[in-house]
Protein backbone atom coordinates (compact mmCIF):
# COMPACT_ATOMS: atom_id res chain seq x y z
CA UNK A 1 0.00 0.00 0.00
CA UNK A 2 1.39 3.33 -1.04
CA UNK A 3 -0.64 5.58 1.17
CA UNK A 4 -0.19 4.54 4.75
CA UNK A 5 -2.86 5.77 7.04
CA UNK A 6 -2.27 5.80 10.68
CA UNK A 7 -5.22 4.33 12.44
CA UNK A 8 -5.54 5.04 16.09
CA UNK A 9 -6.67 1.98 17.99
CA UNK A 10 -9.55 3.10 20.09
CA UNK A 11 -9.25 2.58 23.76
CA UNK A 12 -12.24 0.51 24.71
CA UNK A 13 -12.18 1.61 28.30
CA UNK A 14 -15.82 2.28 29.04
CA UNK A 15 -18.05 0.66 26.43
CA UNK A 16 -21.71 1.61 26.62
CA UNK A 17 -22.78 -1.91 25.75
CA UNK A 18 -21.81 -5.40 26.76
CA UNK A 19 -19.35 -6.48 24.06
CA UNK A 20 -18.80 -10.03 22.85
CA UNK A 21 -16.43 -11.61 20.34
CA UNK A 22 -15.65 -10.05 16.98
CA UNK A 23 -18.60 -10.55 14.62
CA UNK A 24 -17.46 -8.46 11.62
CA UNK A 25 -13.84 -8.47 10.52
CA UNK A 26 -12.63 -6.36 7.59
CA UNK A 27 -9.02 -6.63 6.48
CA UNK A 28 -7.61 -4.24 3.89
CA UNK A 29 -10.86 -3.97 1.92
CA UNK A 30 -10.59 -2.32 -1.51
CA UNK A 31 -13.17 -1.48 -4.09
CA UNK A 32 -13.11 0.23 -7.44
CA UNK A 33 -15.96 1.63 -9.53
CA UNK A 34 -14.22 1.47 -12.88
CA UNK A 35 -11.08 3.56 -12.37
CA UNK A 36 -12.43 5.22 -9.26
CA UNK A 37 -10.90 3.82 -6.05
CA UNK A 38 -13.85 4.07 -3.62
CA UNK A 39 -12.52 1.98 -0.75
CA UNK A 40 -8.78 2.19 -0.22
CA UNK A 41 -7.88 -0.40 2.36
CA UNK A 42 -10.45 -0.43 5.13
CA UNK A 43 -9.44 -2.46 8.16
CA UNK A 44 -11.64 -2.69 11.22
CA UNK A 45 -13.60 -5.12 13.29
CA UNK A 46 -16.87 -4.90 15.14
CA UNK A 47 -17.71 -6.85 18.28
CA UNK A 48 -20.98 -8.38 19.19
CA UNK A 49 -23.31 -5.83 20.81
CA UNK A 50 -21.18 -2.91 19.67
CA UNK A 51 -22.71 0.22 18.16
CA UNK A 52 -20.43 1.83 15.58
CA UNK A 53 -21.27 5.17 14.02
CA UNK A 54 -19.66 5.96 10.67
CA UNK A 55 -19.45 9.57 9.58
CA UNK A 56 -17.57 11.62 7.05
CA UNK A 57 -17.97 13.79 3.97
CA UNK A 58 -20.42 12.89 1.23
CA UNK A 59 -18.87 10.62 -1.39
CA UNK A 60 -16.26 9.26 1.00
CA UNK A 61 -17.46 5.68 0.55
CA UNK A 62 -19.49 5.20 3.75
CA UNK A 63 -22.49 3.68 1.97
CA UNK A 64 -20.30 1.56 -0.25
CA UNK A 65 -18.48 0.24 2.80
CA UNK A 66 -21.50 -0.87 4.78
CA UNK A 67 -23.04 -2.31 1.61
CA UNK A 68 -20.03 -4.58 1.17
CA UNK A 69 -20.89 -6.12 4.53
CA UNK A 70 -24.08 -7.72 3.16
CA UNK A 71 -22.67 -7.94 -0.35
CA UNK A 72 -24.95 -5.40 -2.00
CA UNK A 73 -21.56 -4.27 -3.27
CA UNK A 74 -18.76 -6.70 -4.04
CA UNK A 75 -15.31 -5.84 -2.73
CA UNK A 76 -12.41 -6.37 -5.11
CA UNK A 77 -9.59 -7.05 -2.68
CA UNK A 78 -9.14 -7.88 0.98
CA UNK A 79 -11.20 -9.95 3.34
CA UNK A 80 -14.60 -9.54 4.97
CA UNK A 81 -15.73 -12.09 7.53
CA UNK A 82 -19.22 -11.79 8.97
CA UNK A 83 -20.29 -14.07 11.79
CA UNK A 84 -17.56 -16.53 10.89
CA UNK A 85 -18.47 -16.68 7.19
CA UNK A 86 -16.10 -15.18 4.65
CA UNK A 87 -17.63 -13.15 1.82
CA UNK A 88 -16.87 -14.90 -1.42
CA UNK A 89 -18.77 -15.33 -4.63
CA UNK A 90 -20.39 -18.42 -3.17
CA UNK A 91 -24.11 -17.72 -3.40
CA UNK A 92 -24.84 -19.85 -0.36
CA UNK A 93 -22.54 -17.76 1.80
CA UNK A 94 -24.08 -14.56 0.54
CA UNK A 95 -27.63 -15.75 1.20
CA UNK A 96 -26.61 -17.06 4.63
CA UNK A 97 -25.07 -13.72 5.58
CA UNK A 98 -28.00 -11.70 4.28
CA UNK A 99 -30.29 -13.65 6.57
CA UNK A 100 -28.16 -12.58 9.55
CA UNK A 101 -27.66 -8.95 8.54
CA UNK A 102 -30.57 -6.53 8.42
CA UNK A 103 -30.35 -3.30 6.49
CA UNK A 104 -32.22 -0.01 6.71
CA UNK A 105 -31.97 2.38 3.77
CA UNK A 106 -32.10 6.14 3.51
CA UNK A 107 -35.09 5.89 1.13
CA UNK A 108 -36.89 3.21 3.25
CA UNK A 109 -37.42 0.98 0.19
CA UNK A 110 -40.65 -0.49 1.51
CA UNK A 111 -42.56 -2.63 -0.98
CA UNK A 112 -45.38 -0.33 -2.16
CA UNK A 113 -47.64 -3.15 -3.42
CA UNK A 114 -47.75 -4.86 -0.03
CA UNK A 115 -49.36 -3.77 3.23
CA UNK A 116 -47.20 -2.95 6.22
CA UNK A 117 -47.93 -6.38 7.67
CA UNK A 118 -47.11 -8.11 4.40
CA UNK A 119 -43.88 -6.12 4.11
CA UNK A 120 -42.80 -7.43 7.50
CA UNK A 121 -43.95 -11.04 7.11
CA UNK A 122 -42.67 -11.59 3.56
CA UNK A 123 -39.10 -12.61 4.37
CA UNK A 124 -39.88 -14.63 7.53
CA UNK A 125 -42.41 -16.66 5.54
CA UNK A 126 -40.39 -17.16 2.35
CA UNK A 127 -36.86 -17.28 3.75
CA UNK A 128 -37.26 -18.49 7.33
CA UNK A 129 -40.20 -20.72 6.34
CA UNK A 130 -42.35 -19.57 9.24
CA UNK A 131 -46.09 -20.09 9.08
CA UNK A 132 -48.13 -17.06 8.18
CA UNK A 133 -49.61 -17.07 11.68
CA UNK A 134 -46.26 -17.07 13.47
CA UNK A 135 -44.91 -14.40 11.16
CA UNK A 136 -47.93 -12.17 11.69
CA UNK A 137 -47.83 -12.53 15.44
CA UNK A 138 -44.19 -11.54 15.39
CA UNK A 139 -44.83 -8.67 12.99
CA UNK A 140 -47.45 -7.27 15.34
CA UNK A 141 -45.00 -7.48 18.25
CA UNK A 142 -42.43 -5.61 16.21
CA UNK A 143 -44.96 -2.97 15.20
CA UNK A 144 -45.74 -2.50 18.90
CA UNK A 145 -42.04 -2.17 19.53
CA UNK A 146 -41.63 0.58 16.92
CA UNK A 147 -44.86 2.18 18.10
CA UNK A 148 -47.25 1.83 15.13
CA UNK A 149 -49.35 -1.33 15.53
CA UNK A 150 -52.42 0.52 14.25
CA UNK A 151 -50.84 0.94 10.80
CA UNK A 152 -50.54 -2.80 10.12
CA UNK A 153 -53.09 -2.96 7.32
CA UNK A 154 -52.17 0.24 5.53
CA UNK A 155 -49.99 0.52 2.47
CA UNK A 156 -46.58 2.24 2.77
CA UNK A 157 -47.78 5.12 0.59
CA UNK A 158 -50.33 6.00 3.26
CA UNK A 159 -47.73 6.49 6.01
CA UNK A 160 -45.50 9.41 6.95
CA UNK A 161 -41.76 9.15 6.31
CA UNK A 162 -40.99 8.50 9.96
CA UNK A 163 -43.60 5.76 10.12
CA UNK A 164 -42.26 4.21 6.93
CA UNK A 165 -38.74 4.11 8.29
CA UNK A 166 -39.97 2.49 11.49
CA UNK A 167 -41.75 -0.14 9.39
CA UNK A 168 -38.50 -0.67 7.50
CA UNK A 169 -36.69 -1.27 10.79
CA UNK A 170 -39.41 -3.70 11.89
CA UNK A 171 -39.15 -5.47 8.53
CA UNK A 172 -35.42 -5.97 8.98
CA UNK A 173 -35.83 -7.08 12.60
CA UNK A 174 -38.42 -9.69 11.61
CA UNK A 175 -35.59 -11.79 10.19
CA UNK A 176 -34.05 -11.80 13.70
CA UNK A 177 -30.72 -10.53 12.41
CA UNK A 178 -27.54 -10.58 14.50
CA UNK A 179 -26.32 -7.37 12.91
CA UNK A 180 -28.16 -4.25 11.70
CA UNK A 181 -26.80 -1.85 9.11
CA UNK A 182 -28.25 1.66 8.85
CA UNK A 183 -27.41 3.89 5.88
CA UNK A 184 -28.36 7.45 6.82
CA UNK A 185 -31.75 6.32 8.16
CA UNK A 186 -32.90 9.83 9.05
CA UNK A 187 -31.51 11.85 6.14
CA UNK A 188 -34.69 11.71 4.07
CA UNK A 189 -36.93 12.66 6.98
CA UNK A 190 -38.49 15.92 7.98
CA UNK A 191 -36.93 17.23 11.23
CA UNK A 192 -39.97 16.47 13.37
CA UNK A 193 -39.82 12.80 12.41
CA UNK A 194 -36.14 12.22 13.06
CA UNK A 195 -36.58 11.73 16.77
CA UNK A 196 -39.16 8.95 16.48
CA UNK A 197 -36.76 6.93 14.33
CA UNK A 198 -33.73 7.64 16.53
CA UNK A 199 -35.73 6.57 19.59
CA UNK A 200 -36.36 3.20 18.00
CA UNK A 201 -32.66 2.87 17.19
CA UNK A 202 -31.68 3.82 20.74
CA UNK A 203 -33.94 1.14 22.13
CA UNK A 204 -32.48 -1.37 19.68
CA UNK A 205 -28.94 -0.48 20.72
CA UNK A 206 -29.71 -0.94 24.39
CA UNK A 207 -31.24 -4.34 23.64
CA UNK A 208 -27.76 -5.53 22.66
CA UNK A 209 -28.02 -5.42 18.86
CA UNK A 210 -24.78 -5.06 16.93
CA UNK A 211 -25.23 -1.92 14.83
CA UNK A 212 -23.31 -0.12 12.11
CA UNK A 213 -24.86 3.28 11.57
CA UNK A 214 -23.95 5.80 8.91
CA UNK A 215 -25.34 9.06 10.25
CA UNK A 216 -24.60 12.68 10.88
CA UNK A 217 -26.85 12.83 13.95
CA UNK A 218 -24.04 13.66 16.32
CA UNK A 219 -26.27 13.79 19.39
CA UNK A 220 -27.28 10.23 18.73
CA UNK A 221 -23.64 9.23 18.19
CA UNK A 222 -22.46 10.84 21.42
CA UNK A 223 -25.19 9.15 23.38
CA UNK A 224 -25.32 5.69 21.83
CA UNK A 225 -22.09 4.90 19.95
CA UNK A 226 -19.39 2.76 21.50
CA UNK A 227 -17.04 3.82 18.74
CA UNK A 228 -17.02 6.26 15.86
CA UNK A 229 -15.26 5.88 12.53
CA UNK A 230 -14.36 8.97 10.52
CA UNK A 231 -14.34 8.14 6.80
CA UNK A 232 -12.63 10.26 4.20
CA UNK A 233 -11.63 9.39 0.64
CA UNK A 234 -12.34 5.70 1.14
CA UNK A 235 -10.34 5.28 4.30
CA UNK A 236 -10.88 5.26 8.04
CA UNK A 237 -8.94 8.34 8.96
CA UNK A 238 -9.64 8.24 12.64
CA UNK A 239 -11.59 6.21 15.13
CA UNK A 240 -12.33 6.41 18.81
CA UNK A 241 -15.03 6.72 21.44
CA UNK A 242 -17.40 9.65 20.98
CA UNK A 243 -15.65 11.40 23.87
CA UNK A 244 -12.27 11.11 22.14
CA UNK A 245 -13.64 12.14 18.75
CA UNK A 246 -15.60 15.15 19.95
CA UNK A 247 -13.26 16.51 22.61
CA UNK A 248 -9.91 15.50 21.25
CA UNK A 249 -9.84 14.73 17.50
CA UNK A 250 -6.32 13.82 16.35
CA UNK A 251 -6.46 14.55 12.63
CA UNK A 252 -6.76 17.81 10.84
CA UNK A 253 -9.40 16.43 8.46
CA UNK A 254 -11.53 15.23 11.38
CA UNK A 255 -11.30 18.61 13.06
CA UNK A 256 -12.28 20.43 9.89
CA UNK A 257 -15.22 18.13 9.20
CA UNK A 258 -16.51 18.30 12.78
CA UNK A 259 -16.26 22.07 12.79
CA UNK A 260 -18.38 22.12 9.66
CA UNK A 261 -21.23 19.97 10.94
CA UNK A 262 -21.35 20.86 14.65
Amino acid sequence: MSEQVEVKEAKRSTPKHQLGEEIIICRDVHKWFGDFHVLCGVTTSVRKGEVVVIFGPSGSGKSTFIRTINRLEEHDKGQIIVDGIEMTNDIRNIDAIRREVGMVFQQFNLFPHLTVLQNITLAPVWVRKKTKKEAEAMAMELLERVGIPEQAHKYPGQLSGGQQQRVAIARALAMEPRIMLFDEPTSALDPEMIKEVLDVMRELASSGMTMLVVTHEMGFAREVADRMLFFDKGQIVEQGTPEQIFSNPQHERTKVFLSQIL
Binding site: N70, L72, D95, R98, R99, V101, G102, M103, F105, Q107, N109, L110, F111, L122, A123, W126, V127, A168, R171, A172, M175
Partner: peptide, 16 residues
Protein backbone atom coordinates in the same frame (compact mmCIF):
# COMPACT_ATOMS: atom_id res chain seq x y z
CA UNK B 1 -33.29 -0.52 -7.84
CA UNK B 2 -33.81 0.02 -4.12
CA UNK B 3 -36.69 -2.44 -4.25
CA UNK B 4 -34.40 -5.21 -5.42
CA UNK B 5 -31.73 -4.25 -2.91
CA UNK B 6 -34.25 -4.30 -0.08
CA UNK B 7 -35.50 -7.73 -1.12
CA UNK B 8 -32.00 -9.15 -1.49
CA UNK B 9 -30.89 -7.69 1.84
CA UNK B 10 -33.78 -9.53 3.51
CA UNK B 11 -32.35 -12.79 2.19
CA UNK B 12 -34.85 -13.38 -0.60
CA UNK B 13 -33.17 -15.21 -3.46
CA UNK B 14 -33.19 -14.05 -7.06
CA UNK B 15 -36.27 -16.07 -7.97
CA UNK B 16 -38.27 -14.85 -4.96
Amino acid sequence: NGQIEAARSLGLNVFQ
